[in-house]
Design a protein around this nucleic acid. Structure first.
Lengths: 158, 158
DNA sequence: GCCCGCGTACTCGGATATTTTGTGTCCGAGTAAGAGGGG
DNA sequence: CCCCTCTTACTCGGACACAAAATATCCGAGTACGCGGGC
């Protein structure tokens, strides 16, 4: 169960845009330079976030990506699911109903215990990430860095 | 973040062995037949559980796999980590220290906020699974099925 | 009838292909800014 | 001095190779049972 590296990139990018004045757009080229990432591959993660309705993309000079909602309305779970997908990590194949020891349908009205505990663990994971929004990520950045970033990305708000 | 299908197999197999008289060994052939699984591939999951110290394997006729500890001493997390590995799903690459916007080492004494929240979510997931042991998985199986399984796998305790 | 030896069938274990997923890269279409010329 | 037009450079988006991991399979080594023969 290894998580795609793009998740880290997406979280960092959202946190960076979130610490700039609201409405500021940052191009993927600038983002890639800032974090030392391959621009073309980063594009894939940003596109996914656009499709999920987290970011808005604009073309042309002074274009780029900006937050689609207030930074307090975007959770870490939103970003993770945008990039990694919303499918649960555990998919029950109902093997209890297969093979020579197959359980009769009468005993399978309720979800099997194993599927239940995995779903519960998934909910715990989700709840932990849903409790964090981009605002809190920004707050965790040292003030000196935040000031430097704001200076570096000073640009017309479009 | 998709979880290997073998995790489901491992959990079901442990739960099945756990509902038999203590010390009962079940061959991988019998397990594969019981759940309708490819025996050769199931072998890989069982081997992983042996390496992790969850199961004990014995050769020869009447051989097979049995629990290495009491069913109340084996958690769902033990089984998951045996098959899926103990590596955390999120690995922080410290991209905050790379690229043109690299943070100075002075500001990186503490783990970055993003790494922290991902680690926290991972702990929540782990705690949820650590709270479940094989005994509880067995208890979730309908009594009629448990009786049938005990009858079917009646064998000398070796 | 009891004990010993041997063959046999059953077991697990590691080494080997195939398919799917994640990683990485490239090139083309669209758009808005900004310079330049005309009124 | 103001407005319109055109060029240009910048942006995103989708389509195309590459590498790693999960999936699936085969064959070989070892072991305990149980039968057969001998005592």
């Amino acid at each position: 169960m290894r998580l795609s590296q793009g998740v880290e990139w997406g979280l960092h990018c959202a946190a960076l845009i979130g610490q700039l004045p609201p409405g500021t757009a940052v191009s993927r080229r600038a983002l890639a330079r800032h974090f030392g990432l391959p621009e073309s591959y980063l594009a894939k993660q940003l596109q996914a976030m656009v499709r999920a309705g987290i970011l808005l993309a604009s073309s042309g000079p002074h274009g780029g990506f900006r937050l689609a909602r207030a930074s307090s309305e975007i959770t870490a779970l939103d970003i993770l699911e945008a990039i990694d997908g919303t499918a649960p990590p555990f998919v029950c194949q109902e093997i209890r109903q297969q093979g020579s020891g197959a359980a009769p349908a009468r005993d399978c009205k309720a979800a099997c215990g194993i599927s239940a505990i995995m779903a519960s663990a998934h909910r715990a994971w989700q709840n932990s990430l849903r409790a964090i929004d981009v605002d809190q990520l920004v707050a965790a950045v040292p003030p000196t860095l935040r000031a430097r970033n704001r200076r570096q990305f000073a640009k017309a708000t479009r």
